[in-house]
Design a protein around this nucleic acid. Structure first.
Lengths: 102, 102
DNA sequence: CTACTATATAGTAATATTACTATATCTAGT
DNA sequence: ACTAGATATAGTAATATTACTATATAGTAG
């Protein structure tokens, strides 16, 4: 197997995941889904955001492998596909609690 | 003290940190500095990147509170200010190792 | 002051992200 | 087929990010 990997290659995927959740709404969504699935409308309402934007965020995170989607009748429920982002979430909270910069 | 906090407010700072390190070069820099300071030139060389871009990344991360800078003569050494991003780094590595999506 | 090394910044073009409106698609029920 | 509810997508304008070149600034040595 070809092990000739560009050094930068190593950081591409991790960076993409970080960037994906590096948005206030998307971070809020991840936290919201930490303990279970929610429908698009539920998420949008909890977020206080418009349906279209919410759907865009969800689609993006699904494309990046952070979330999964499951259709149930007319509703679509989203959940966390990459469970490790939850650990990430807690890391970043500590990371921020311990600092005073904004 | 005013505890009337916009729900979205909670996610602004964490999201900003994630976004800040959500770039391959910047992630590489964080890893590089995990075990000690480096000068701008050292970092640029190790990265295989141009000096100007490297400096821009470093300045950005310093502004966001991720790194600190320390001048020593003509050189400037950068180090990790927010030690928690190291934990973040390891979280995200596991996060990626355990998934197959790109 | 001059020259040199190291770093930072200005200016800029290409591209990406964001937030929005309007509209399309999908599903279930009548 | 028609309607309504739920979700997705197209199109778009404003803004942000990225990567680049050229130049400026800071520090040191002579």
């Amino acid at each position: 197997m070809a092990m000739t990997v560009n050094p930068a290659e190593k950081f591409r995927k991790p960076a993409r995941v970080l960037k994906t959740v590096g948005h206030p709404d998307r971070l809020a969504i991840v936290e919201m889904l930490e303990h279970g699935e929610r429908s698009v409308n539920e998420i949008a309402e909890a977020l206080g955001a418009k349906q279209a934007i919410t759907s865009q965020h969800l689609t993006l995170m699904r494309d990046k492998g952070v979330l999964y989607a499951r259709r149930e009748g007319t509703k679509v429920f989203y959940g966390i596909e990459n469970k490790n982002v939850i650990r990430l979430l807690h890391c970043i909270y500590q990371s921020c609690d311990n600092t005073q910069q904004n």
